[in-house]
């Protein structure tokens, strides 16, 4: 991918000494459709991400300085995330028909992204595809039993089941990944159900980052977060900005926004905020205002 004299700093998978050179290629990103860089090595698919130095940073490598300060990160990605949008297009589903069954070669044939055909080389691709596709086997013809030709067609139901399973796996592992735990706005004090929902919601977001808009919508429709919604409508965690604000809220205003604006209230004031003041006239209607 690069001229040999150029070196780069990269965090990637451990590669056995005798392995072949990795294949790198541009493929459409499953969510945005923009070309992104992927790597195939030893039958595994990896995505490559770049922490761009924007020309402002460089690396020290022993006694030398490398002017490109970018960091390349290569991490495994489940090939099905790449396949789903492709399968979605090639089956040519219409309102009347569930679409076409296609062989591997036909699926990964694209004029725009010729390197798509590299995906066929992935380990156990057919087994992966079977998780989200209807599969038909037919004799490859020509006798001799050299094997069967498999054809695939994306199945919405299976795909959603598989995606939900992904969300579940992520949610199960959630608490073991500190950066994820930090990323959600829940505190230990939250109700257990709320915590579970917050974790699932966060896992859903992560999975959806690898899905097209329509798939992300379909997947989101499978989930409800009743407790979280209740919580959000009832309280909003005060943000840092709120602490700087002080306002003279009038009695007539709704009590809910008032609570949000006054995060510094003492315990007694919070209790009073809940007190019903119906039938109570403001004191200024009893006592005349005096200029200070």
């Amino acid at each position: 991918m690069v001229a040999t004299n150029q070196q780069r700093i990269c965090i990637g998978p451990e590669v056995p000494q005798d392995s072949k050179n990795p294949v790198t290629m541009l493929l459409p990103h499953p969510s945005s459709g923009f070309p992104s860089r992927y790597v195939i090595q030893e039958g595994q698919l990896y995505e490559m991400q770049l922490v761009d130095s924007e020309g402002l940073r460089s690396w020290f490598i022993r006694d030398t300085v490398q002017s490109d300060g970018s960091l390349y990160i290569i991490t495994p990605i489940d090939p099905l995330f790449m396949c789903i949008p492709i399968l979605d297009i090639v089956r040519q589903r219409t309102s009347e028909s569930e679409g076409l069954f296609l062989g591997l070669q036909d699926i990964f044939e694209s004029d725009q992204y010729t390197s798509l055909r590299n995906l066929v080389e992935l380990d156990k691709l057919d087994q992966h595809l079977a998780l989200v596709c209807d599969v038909r086997e037919s004799d490859s013809g020509g006798g001799g039993g050299s094997g069967k030709r498999k054809t695939f067609r994306l199945d919405n139901h299976r795909t959603l089941t598989w995606l939900k399973r992904k969300v579940q796996v992520l949610a199960d592992k959630f608490s073991s990944i500190p950066v994820l735990v930090d990323s959600i706005d829940y505190t230990e004090s939250l109700h257990e159900i709320c915590q579970t929902e917050a974790i699932t919601q966060s896992a859903l977001r992560l999975v959806s980052a690898y899905l097209s808009e329509s798939w992300a919508k379909q997947l989101a429709a499978e989930y409800q977060f009743p407790e979280l919604e209740k919580l959000e409508s009832r309280i909003q965690l005060p943000t840092l900005l709120d602490f700087g604000k002080r306002s003279a809220t009038d009695m007539d205003e709704d009590s809910k926004p008032k609570e949000i604006k006054k995060p510094k209230m003492s315990a007694g004031q919070r209790k009073l905020a809940k007190a019903s003041t119906t039938g109570m006239k403001p004191l200024s209607s009893f006592f005349a205002k005096k200029s200070a």
């Binding site: 809220t249 009695m251 109570m280 403001p282 004191l283 006592f287």
Partner: peptide, 9 residues
């Protein structure tokens, strides 16, 4: 001073 709701002083 009055409280937030202006019903007490």
């Amino acid at each position: 001073a009055m409280d937030n709701s202006h019903v007490a002083l």
